[in-house]
Amino acid sequence: MGEQADPARVLEKIRIAEETRRSRFIGQEAITLSHGAGGKASFELIEGLIGPAFSNPLLDSLDDAAVIGLPQGLRLAFTTDSYTVSPLFFPGGNIGSLAVHGTVNDLAVSGAVPVALSAGFILEEGFSVTQLRAIVEAMALAARKIGVPIVTGDTKVVPKGKGDGIYINTAGVGIVRAVWHMGRDAVQPGDRVILSGSIGDHGVAVMIARQGLELEAEIESDTSPLHELAARLIDGVGSALHCMKDPTRGGVATTLNEVAQGSNCAIAVDEAAIPVRPEVNGACEILGLDPLTLANEGKLLAFVAPEAAEKALRILREHPLGADSVIIGEVEEGPAHMVYLRTILGGRRVLDMLVGDPLPRIC
Rank of each mutant, 00 (worst) to 15 (best):
P306D: 02
L300E: 05
E297N: 14
A308F: 09
V304R: 11
A308D: 04
R317V: 08
A302L: 04
P291A: 06
A312Y: 10
L313M: 11
L301D: 07
V304D: 13
K299R: 15
P320H: 10
L301R: 03
G298I: 08
G322S: 11
R314T: 01
A308R: 05
I328F: 00
L300T: 00
L292F: 04
G298K: 00
L321M: 12
I327C: 04
P306C: 15
V304L: 14
K311S: 09
K299P: 11
L292N: 03
E307F: 06
A312T: 05
A295L: 11
K311T: 06
L300I: 13
R317A: 07
E307Q: 14
L313D: 07
R314L: 08
N296S: 10
I328V: 00
P306F: 02
K311G: 12
R317W: 01
L301N: 09
I315Y: 07
E318R: 13
L316R: 01
P306V: 15
A305T: 15
D324H: 01
S325P: 06
A295V: 12
V304S: 02
L301S: 08
T293E: 06
F303W: 07
I327V: 06
L313F: 02
L294C: 07
E307M: 03
L313Y: 05
E318C: 10
K311M: 08
A323Q: 13
S325F: 01
L301M: 10
L313I: 11
A302V: 02
L292E: 00
N296G: 15
N296V: 09
T293R: 10
E310W: 04
I328R: 03
P291C: 00
F303M: 09
P320K: 01
P320T: 10
F303G: 05
L301E: 07
V304I: 04
A312K: 12
F303Q: 02
I328Q: 00
K299S: 12
S325W: 09
A308L: 05
